[in-house]
Design a protein around this nucleic acid. Structure first.
Length: 825
RNA sequence: GCCCGGGUGGCGGAAUUGGCAGACGCACAGGACUUAAAAUCCUGUGAGGGUUUCCCUCGUGAGGGUUCGAGUCCCUCCCCGGGCACCA
């Protein structure tokens, strides 16, 4: 008797068969409906961690489900292979980053196969291969041509630990996203992508992403940070110059603008500092602020400090002469780097005015109260204008419109919009990345490498030394000739941010072989959009905004015809241990390998999908895993018991309801209800409840099989076959084995997904809930299709119910068809 | 401060539309099998109470509201998680 569930043998057996058959290689076929399941590609860090297992098992359950439903499924995988950890490992272990990376890919690829994930390995990509990064460089050149890639000298975020520049998106609370090192400012020449060119589209198009989590959309909206307001020019009072531009979202408060504040980095300030008449105090203050790190300067608890410049501007509305100050709380990067200060109606300006005894003038009055004598704090809400000449009496909203019109007519202002989103700084002063295809020539300046010369290959290195840009130390790479004048020139030695590599990889999957273009039009047209994209929420404003940017760029380059690449985004939760993130330093990690060794892949896959809804964090539990393993063993035992008991002639595979006894019909009903539930749950990505439904079904099968009176063998076989089908997205090896044990010749992977029959799923009798005054008092059975009148009669005749309504007047009876009667007394 | 989530037994979590709160699993308790244990199987398991095959009361963060009926809808508040933040 083959009783023991030998998961190792079973899993190996099916993995080998799947690999031989190449069953999961996708073919373009316009006669079939397609489904593109994508998971965020992993960084080859060494071995799969439990978070990968959750992410990819979820994706695989969807891929398998859709495949069985008859979709032509594209389910690819690749490697986000460039990046710092490879370089750090190279420094530590003195091995080439390429070898470290390729070794890791080999390990992780093997693990993917051991997990039974159905990837199309013919489409595997690695972003560090020249055939791939050639096109990353090509994108750079296209952007350069369009003016969307440009070089800028300026202040950048610098991580001392990583020895490189970071994009704004990679700075989290003033620290490096990777290692938490405090980010410092540095002046550097940098390549940037003009993502701000697309800020309005990136914002607007979020509205069409109906199947994206609200959370991610709101994070992106916050990050783009659009503010609508006005730009107004304040003429300088006694100095030469064009005047001072300020941005405000509260033009209605401008009559209360009693001074102006500049950021210390403002260009006017530079001029004034050079002025011999400028005060010592001014220079000292500016230098002190600029020395201070941004994190400290922008901390909320930092006191508002400033200094008077000695200069004045004219408020164009009041025509008053008002002082110009410099302060730490005004930032150069936002708006125009200058503000009009309205202390009566802005908390920051209020604090500042109190500190330096500047005048405060109320110009907005709350709608429901009279103007108080003295403001004790800023009144920041909208209201009605006062002390504002002809605008007095208007509401804030109306006044803003009229005042913009007025400013525009007078020629000193206009409506304006400001965004928080900054251009994407992509230069990295490191080795292991895509080389930037630019040559620096003494005569011609920065010259792009001609497209036909791509790829600019990354030279091989044996080891890497810390503290230098490796590419600058390799003469064969560095020295070249200028593509324009053929003179001596040097290559750009920075490489690209790895987020550039991953901004377009999912397009490449549609045809990873093509070498005449980054993508092939028909392939993209067939497979796109991505039907579902699964990954962690930590990329909500990194990868997921860059990827949307690239999609718009590709559309504008004429490569594709759409603006959004992903129809449905699914952000899965993290795997925690006792409520805390797993980390090597904390020593609370769970190794997928050892779990697989002890319980098998199927038990792990089942547990990780059962323990919590996919979008929520999941607390790891050895006992929960044990429970799932128990479920598989229990099913195994039942399967073999039934197969052995079954006489050979009992293999008729169809069961008609008429031939079944009542318990058999009940099981058939449960089966069809389960098919319906599992199918719906998979569409909704509620794998946890889908699995719970299969567990319930198994409980029902046991109940039926253990009956004294001859259970119907054909019914048992049918229910087990369907159980195998339903289980296959979650525990595929087990399901295949089960399918084979039940005598099925063809492969389960492409067997059609079961369809539920509403006729068979329908209850033979309905349970009617009887309530009195909204409280459940009784339950009675009735035949389906019972009329409302009959239900009422049934309720009123019910013995239990009678006790509650006796001697009381019935005021009203509510009947919910087939479900409930509520008697109000 | 602003913007998104979320709060249900001892625990993870169920409950597409307002209609039996607690599915499924874990843990726990009792029992069966066993010399014993493991494994397995059966039973019970929100709280409190009663006249204990059964029945009652309370119960989904707090308070109020809408409704015949609210975990679900509305208002106010509290707590937890996440994002943004001296952003003008």
């Amino acid at each position: 008797m083959n009783e023991r569930y030998d998961f190792q043998a079973i899993e190996m057996k099916w993995q080998q068969r799947w690999a031989q058959a190449q069953e999961f290689a996708a073919r373009e076929d316009s006669t079939l409906p397609k489904y593109y399941v994508l998971e965020m590609l992993p960084y080859p860090s060494g071995a799969l961690h439990i978070g990968h297992v959750r992410n990819y098992s979820l994706g695989d359950s969807i891929a398998r489900f859709k495949r069985m439903q008859g979709f032509n499924v594209l389910h690819p995988i690749g490697w986000d292979a460039f990046g710092l950890p490879a370089e750090n490992a190279a420094i530590k272990n003195e091995i080439p980053p390429e070898r470290w990376t390729m070794d890791n890919i080999a390990i992780m690829r093997k693990q993917c196969l051991q997990m039974g994930w159905t990837y199309d390995w013919e489409r595997e990509i690695a972003t560090c291969r020249p055939e791939y990064y050639r096109w990353t460089q090509w994108f750079f050149l296209q952007m350069y041509k369009q003016g969307l890639a440009y070089q800028r000298k300026g202040t950048v975020n610098w991580c001392e630990q990583c020895q490189t520049v970071l994009a704004n998106e990679q700075v989290v609370e003033g620290c490096c996203w990777r290692d938490g090192t405090l980010v410092i400012e540095k002046e550097l020449e940098q390549w940037c992508f003009r993502i701000t060119e697309y800020n309005e589209q990136l914002l607007q198009d979020l509205d069409q992403l109906e199947d994206w989590p609200e959370k991610v959309k709101s994070m992106q909206r916050n990050w783009i940070g659009k503010s609508v307001g006005a730009q107004v020019t304040f003429p300088l009072a006694d100095t030469q110059g064009d005047g001072l531009d300020i941005f405000t979202t509260r033009l209605d408060t401008i009559y209360g603008a009693t001074f102006v504040v500049l950021a210390p980095e403002h260009e006017l300030v530079r001029g004034w500092m050079d002025d011999t008449q400028s005060s010592e105090e001014l220079s000292r203050f500016v230098k002190a602020i600029r020395r201070q790190g941004k994190a400290l300067r922008t901390a909320e608890e930092t006191e508002k400090k400033g200094v008077f410049t000695g200069h004045y501007a004219i408020n164009p509305f009041t025509r008053e002469r008002i002082p110009i100050w410099i302060a730490n709380f005004v930032l150069m990067e936002y708006g125009t780097g200058a503000i009009m200060a309205v202390p009566a109606h802005d908390e920051r300006d209020f604090d500042f005015a109190k500190n330096y005894d500047l005048s405060i003038r109320q110009v907005i009055q709350s709608q429901d109260q009279d103007a108080g004598p003295d403001l004790e704090q800023a009144f920041v809400d909208d209201g009605v204008l006062v002390n504002s000449e002809s605008f007095s009496g208007l509401s804030s909203e109306v006044a803003q419109k009229k005042m913009v019109e007025y400013a525009q007519a007078q020629g000193f202002g206009e409506a304006a919009v400001s965004y928080r989103l900054r251009d994407w700084s992509i230069s990295r002063q490191r080795y292991w990345g895509t080389p930037i295809p630019i040559v620096h020539c003494q005569k011609c300046g920065a010259v792009p490498v001609p497209e036909e010369d791509l790829p600019v290959k990354l030279p091989k290195v044996e080891t890497i030394q810390l503290g230098q840009s490796p590419l600058a130390t390799i003469p064969e790479f560095l020295n070249t000739s200028c593509p324009k004048c053929q003179g001596k020139a040097q290559r750009e030695t920075d490489t690209m941010d790895t987020f550039v590599d991953s901004s377009w990889y999912f397009y490449r999957y549609t045809d990873p072989q093509i070498d005449s273009a980054p993508v092939r039009d028909e392939a993209v047209r067939y497979w796109f959009p991505v039907d579902i994209y699964i990954g962690g929420v930590e990329h909500a404003i990194l990868h997921l905004i860059y990827m949307r940017f690239f999609t718009k760029l590709m559309r504008d380059l004429g490569l594709t015809g759409f603006g959004e690449p992903v129809k449905r985004l699914f952000t899965q939760g993290m795997v925690l241990q006792e409520g805390m993130a797993m980390s090597k330093s904390r020593g609370n990690t769970v190794s997928p390998e050892s779990v697989v060794r002890e319980y098998g892949t199927d038990a792990l896959r089942l547990f990780i999908q059962f323990a919590a809804p996919p979008e929520r964090d999941l607390d790891w539990s050895d006992q929960g895993l044990e429970g799932c393993s128990r479920f598989l063993k229990r099913l195994w035992r039942l399967l073999h018991r039934i197969v052995e008991e079954m006489s050979p002639d009992a293999t008729a595979s169809s069961v008609s309801r008429e031939e079944l006894s009542e318990p058999g019909r009940a099981l058939q009903r449960k089966l069809h209800q389960t098919i319906q539930k599992v199918t719906n749950d998979l569409e909704r990505i509620r794998q946890n409840t889908a699995i719970a439904a299969i567990m319930e079904l198994l409980n029902s099968i046991y109940e039926y099989a253990d009956r004294e009176d001859q259970p119907d063998p054909a019914m048992l076989k049918e229910v087990l076959k369907t159980t195998a089908l339903l289980l296959s997205p979650f525990a595929p090896h087990f399901a295949e084995e089960m399918w084979e044990t039940l005598g099925q010749a063809e492969r389960l992977t492409f067997a059609p997904w079961p369809v539920f029959d509403p006729e068979l799923a329908r209850e033979e009798e309905v349970k009617i809930i009887i309530q009195v005054n909204g409280k459940v008092r009784s339950r009675v059975s009735a035949l389906p299709g019972i009329s409302e009148e009959e239900m009422q009669t049934l309720a009123l005749d019910d013995q239990k119910t009678k006790a509650y309504i006796e001697g009381k007047t019935i005021r009203k009876i509510i009947v919910v068809p087939q479900k409930l009667v509520n008697i109000v007394v």
